[in-house]
Design a protein around this nucleic acid. Structure first.
Lengths: 119, 119
DNA sequence: CATAGTACCTTGTAAAGCAAAGTACTATGT
DNA sequence: ACATAGTACTTTGCTTTACAAGGTACTATG
């Protein structure tokens, strides 16, 4: 337990991840059809930690929005899996998110540079 | 009002901003002592929209955490202003946030590249 | 048939941005 | 003197969403 009065870098990281999660999740599904545990593993490999309780509702949300769809598929080692793929709409939104990301990137990197100059 | 069933890019942007806001705010204060409206203007210039109701609580939070401090100063054109500066601790945290940011950047840009390759 | 492993789902909680409304100071025009 | 406008700081209620924790259910193995 972290004292409430202390700045909590881990929490800050979590907050930063929080806002942007949809984007890397869509990116991963765009790479190739994946199911939940798959996605979590791939995100972890990219240093973006996420847990089940976050991902399942997020995938539902994306599906209700028509950005992804799934097909059930048997597995040799357990219950069937929901394999997700992007819809046409999902691909469009992904493109837009990419440009939002690039914009944010430019903005913040400009601020960082500005700050380095003045120090 | 946006229909709930539609993907709302503005909301997505807002969510992304949400997690990361502390960082650019600290960057701006690091650049030079600033007061609230100042900060909002500079953020807007960097394409990071933010409103009063967001910034004031955020600044209070940062102050309670000991990352920033302020001094009252008279203004020729209205009520006095709270000019914020970074504390020593604030500068340390800012460095850490910079490295968190770089990490996130690498992670996501790697995913983007991966995705471009496979398409 | 009990256990372990895998996969999907749900509930309750907390954090934090935002819209909107409020308080208060200064300057300007009548 | 007083109304209006501009600036600045603050607060309240709402909404969204990640997470912790717990639950259901299917398959394989001993």
């Amino acid at each position: 337990m972290n004292k409430k009065e202390e700045f909590d870098l881990e929490n800050a990281k979590a907050q930063i991840r929080k806002g942007i999660l949809e984007f890397p999740v869509l990116l991963i599904i765009a790479e190739g059809r994946s199911y939940a545990s798959d996605i979590i593993k791939k995100l972890k490999k990219a240093d973006l930690i996420i847990v089940e309780g976050t991902l399942y509702p997020l995938l539902s949300r994306l599906r209700h929005l028509g950005l992804v769809e799934y097909t059930w598929e048997e597995s040799k080692s357990g219950p069937p899996r929901k394999y997700y793929t992007l819809t046409r709409k999902g691909r469009e939104i992904l493109k837009q998110l990419e440009s939002v990301w690039k914009g944010l990137n430019n903005s913040i990197n400009a601020l960082i540079k500005n700050n380095e100059k003045n120090s």
